[in-house]
Design a protein around this nucleic acid. Sequence first.
DNA 1: TCCGAGTATGTCAGAAATGACATAGGACGC
DNA 2: GCGTCCTATGTCATTTCTGACATACTCGGA
Lengths: 104, 104
Amino acid sequence: MDKAKQKRLEAAGWKVGTVQDFLELSPEESLLIDIRARLALVLSERRKAQSLTQAELARRIRSSQSRVAKMEAADGSVSLDLLVRSLLALGTTRKELAAAIAGK
Amino acid sequence: MDKAKQKRLEAAGWKVGTVQDFLELSPEESLLIDIRARLALVLSERRKAQSLTQAELARRIRSSQSRVAKMEAADGSVSLDLLVRSLLALGTTRKELAAAIAGK
DNA sequence: TCCGAGTATGTCAGAAATGACATAGGACGC
DNA sequence: GCGTCCTATGTCATTTCTGACATACTCGGA
């Protein structure tokens, strides 16, 4: 977005900024959300790579299809614990997990 | 422990094995516990490196001294979420977090 | 078009984690 | 000894997460 457009929007009463600004997240909060998103993505990738459905993965970790869907969507209602446990259940190693968090 | 001692203990009715065997943890479960222990250790180290007391860290993350103590003790009642949030509150970066999980 | 398999989304009772508090233990100086 | 500071451990009411369920959406193939 260029400066001119920003000026116009602000003149019209709009707030301009990042999603972070909008939701007023602290740096740590957005970092945590970032980490969750990364793990969610890896979970989804690994599950598909193993040709498992969400329902199958759910059975394996004694959860439900809906919770797996929420995990992969990085829904705010899922904990890191559950995400990590799921990844481990898919055979992810400590180092792979670390790589997922560190980014490629 | 040498084989001879093991034989003697078993003859006396003792079970011999690792803690994992004893608690009957699955590989994923013990991996998760391992990860928690690593994060707990790093948390403790980082806090001390910054000359903070448990109470001070607790205030910063809006928790309590007792919970911080439990975190550092890798108590089973603390979640990964809380551990990670605490680490982030101490300025840990994604990459440092990853390194803590991967091991040195 | 309808079906079927997979995925997404909403809700909720029960389970687990949480912060707060009390209190005990440990290490240090006085 | 006593007091002070920090940490450890236990308990508990409240908050948050969880699995289960229902139901809606998507996208191929027939």
